[in-house]
């Protein structure tokens, strides 16, 4: 992919360690407008850390992080106005009602109260949640919370979306809706940074896949490109191959044999 425009995200030699352990080892990455990045990797590979660094949640990294062409270490938080974020753990202030929470988030992004409320209500309605708009989030099921989080990340019409397992807990119909929403948003020039463990979804949704293993980028390209390079049929198999994981059969055998000892 050759791009002439300026990258939306640009990481240069991004390195970070916690407790003397290197989590990210000099990552270089440019992400362009309209891309849907599938950001995958085994547990502990550093996926969430990368996202958190870009959101300014984690400090103390080395290297350069530029978002919308601005170095984020300069202390100016304005770039966050154009970012939407769905965190992995469904953390929200759950003793607020959906309406209160969503308007609050919208206002933090600098929107007007009336505007946000109207917008939030409309979006809730589309997700079939209009009846619980004024109920407390603590009474919501996992799927309902996830929908609220997705709405809260889109209220301010961001140009860049960070989604960490955004489909978890959603039923099959909602999954299709959200996937379609993402595709349409990308078509309109939004950039989406999507991390997940569910390879089937990543395979279908992303137009560029980045595989992180042990703090290094070990693969970068469209699904078709990855398939060509690795001669494997599914993303799951490519994933296993690239992360050097080939013992699944032996592990499963051992597991089952322990289960059978009653």
């Amino acid at each position: 992919m050759v791009q002439n425009e300026q990258p939306i995200i640009s990481l240069k030699d991004l390195t970070i360690s916690f407790d003397n352990k290197m989590i990210l080892k000099a990552i270089n990455l440019d992400v362009y407008k309209g891309q849907i990045i599938g950001y995958i990797g085994p547990n502990g590979a550093g996926k969430s850390t990368t996202v958190k660094i870009m959101l300014g949640l984690v400090e103390g990294y080395h290297g350069q992080v530029q978002i919308f062409g601005q170095d984020i270490s300069n202390g100016n938080v304005d770039y966050k106005k154009r970012i939407g974020y769905v965190p992995e753990t469904a953390e929200l202030y759950d003793n607020l009602t959906a309406s209160e929470y969503l308007t609050f988030v919208g206002e933090l992004y600098g929107m007007d109260y009336e505007k946000v409320e109207e917008k939030a209500q409309k979006l809730m309605k589309i997700f079939g949640l209009e009846d619980v708009f004024h109920n407390r989030l603590s009474s919501f099921s996992k799927g309902m919370r996830q929908k609220v989080l997705i709405i809260s990340s889109l209220l301010h019409n961001p140009d860049l979306l960070f989604l960490d397992e955004p489909l978890s807990g959603l039923d099959a119909n909602s999954v299709i809706v959200v996937k379609e929403v993402l595709a349409q948003l990308a078509a309109q020039g939004k950039t989406i940074f999507y991390s997940s463990h569910i390879m089937e979804v990543v395979e279908k949704i992303s137009n560029r896949i980045i595989l992180l293993s042990n703090g290094n980028i070990v693969a970068d390209g469209s699904f078709a490109e990855l398939k060509e390079q690795n001669k494997e049929g599914t993303l799951e198999e490519i994933f296993n191959q690239l992360t050097g994981f080939n013992k699944h059969q032996a592990i499963a055998e051992e597991f089952v044999s322990i289960v059978q000892e009653v």
Partner: peptide, 14 residues
């Protein structure tokens, strides 16, 4: 409150 970090930290607030 840990939620502060995730909810407020990701918003354009100093």
């Amino acid at each position: 409150d840990l939620r502060d970090k995730n909810i407020l930290g990701t918003k354009p607030i100093h």
